[in-house]
Amino acid sequence: MPWDQYNYTATPWAEIPATINEVGSIYTCQGFDLNYAGIIIGPPINQVQGQNRLQVNLDKMTDTEMFKKRTDLTDPVEIEQLEKQMVMNSLNVLFKRGVHGCYLYAHDPLLRYTLCTLFDQINY
C-alpha cells in the first residue's frame, strides 16, 4: 500500500476519504481516535533474544524528520538514549489510536512469534 503523502490542504490526512487505502504514520495518526489501527512494528524495533524486552536499533531508522538536531544536547550517549525513547514513545502513541482495537504486525520474527503467543493466551 502507498505510504501517506504530505497533505497541503487544511483537511487532516486521516479525514480524507482516499487515505483509507494508504498507510499512515505517527505524524498522520497523531491526535486521532480511529475505529481500528493497523500497526507495523518495523525493522528498528526487535525483541531481545531470551528476554521479554524490546530494543531499538537506530541504524535501521529511515525517518529523517524524527530526530531534529537540538543545540542544547551535546552528549552523544544522552542523544542516543533520547532518540531510542522517542521511537518507543511513538510506538506507544500508535498503540492507542484504535478505539475498538488494533492489528499488529512485527517485522522481527521473534517479536511476531511472541505477540502471537501472547494474544493466543488472552481470554476474550
Rank of each mutant, 00 (worst) to 15 (best):
A37F: 01
A37Y: 01
G38R: 02
G38E: 02
G38Y: 12
I39T: 07
I39L: 15
I39V: 15
I39A: 07
I39S: 05
I40G: 01
I40Q: 04
I41D: 02
I41M: 09
I41P: 01
G42C: 14
G42Q: 11
G42D: 14
G42V: 05
P43S: 14
P43K: 15
P43C: 03
P43D: 12
P43V: 06
P44L: 07
P44K: 06
I45G: 01
I45L: 10
I45R: 02
I45C: 02
N46I: 01
N46W: 05
N46M: 08
N46V: 00
N46H: 13
Q47D: 01
V48D: 06
V48G: 05
V48H: 08
V48F: 11
Q49K: 13
Q49C: 00
G50E: 07
G50F: 02
G50D: 08
G50I: 04
G50T: 05
Q51Y: 13
Q51T: 05
N52F: 03
R53V: 09
R53G: 00
R53K: 15
L54Y: 09
L54G: 04
L54A: 07
Q55R: 14
Q55F: 07
Q55C: 09
Q55V: 06
Q55T: 13
Q55K: 14
V56P: 01
V56C: 05
V56T: 09
V56Q: 07
V56S: 04
N57P: 00
N57S: 10
L58W: 06
L58M: 06
L58C: 05
L58Y: 07
L58N: 04
D59Y: 03
M61G: 01
M61P: 02
M61F: 03
M61L: 13
M61S: 08
T62W: 08
T62H: 09
D63Y: 08
D63L: 10
D63I: 11
D63S: 12
D63F: 08
T64W: 04
T64R: 14
T64N: 12
T64Q: 14
T64Y: 09
T64C: 00
E65W: 08
M66D: 06
M66F: 02
M66S: 12
M66N: 03
M66A: 14
F67P: 03
F67H: 09
F67C: 07
K68C: 01
K68G: 06
R70M: 09
R70S: 12
R70F: 07
R70G: 04
R70Y: 11
R70E: 13
R70T: 03
T71A: 15
D72Y: 11
D72E: 15
D72C: 09
D72N: 15
D72F: 08
L73A: 03
L73M: 12
